Amino acid sequence: MSMFIILLSLIAIGVAGYSVYYTFKIAGQEKRLKGEFDTDIPENVKQHPYMRNPVFLAILVFTVFVVVMILYLSFNFIN
């Protein structure tokens, strides 16, 4: 694997890690705020708050896709 592929992989993993960290940080702020205008959260979402969050799912799917594409392209075009 070339140095470019390794660097690209590390950047992709770093961006995904930062986005997960930032999303958890924002989600923690939401818990501290007590809004009077919010509706009740459904019970199944309360039981699994992270698995039901589309932001987390999109980050997971995108990260897996990018890593698989990087590995596929790096193994197919090894010189």
Rank of each mutant, 00 (worst) to 15 (best):
L57F: 12
Y21R: 06
T63N: 05
G35M: 13
V68C: 07
N53R: 03
Y21P: 00
F4I: 13
T63C: 03
V64L: 06
V20R: 01
N79F: 09
P54D: 02
T39W: 10
L8Y: 08
M3Q: 15
L7Y: 09
Y18R: 05
V45Y: 10
M3I: 11
F37D: 08
I26G: 06
Y50Q: 07
I59K: 01
S19H: 06
L60A: 08
G17Y: 05
V61F: 12
G17N: 02
T63D: 03
G35N: 13
V55I: 09
Y72A: 08
N53P: 00
D38L: 11
I70C: 04
F65L: 10
K46T: 06
H48F: 06
L7C: 11
S74P: 02
N79R: 13
G14R: 06
V61S: 04
I5Q: 13
S74G: 10
M51P: 02
I13L: 10
R32T: 07
F4L: 12
M69K: 13
I5S: 14
M69E: 07
P49H: 04
F56W: 01
R52Y: 12
P42L: 02
L33D: 14
N44I: 09
V64I: 08
A27I: 04
L73N: 14
M3C: 12
R52L: 05
V20H: 00
F62T: 04
I70Y: 05
I59M: 03
L33A: 15
Y72F: 14
F37Y: 15
N44Y: 13
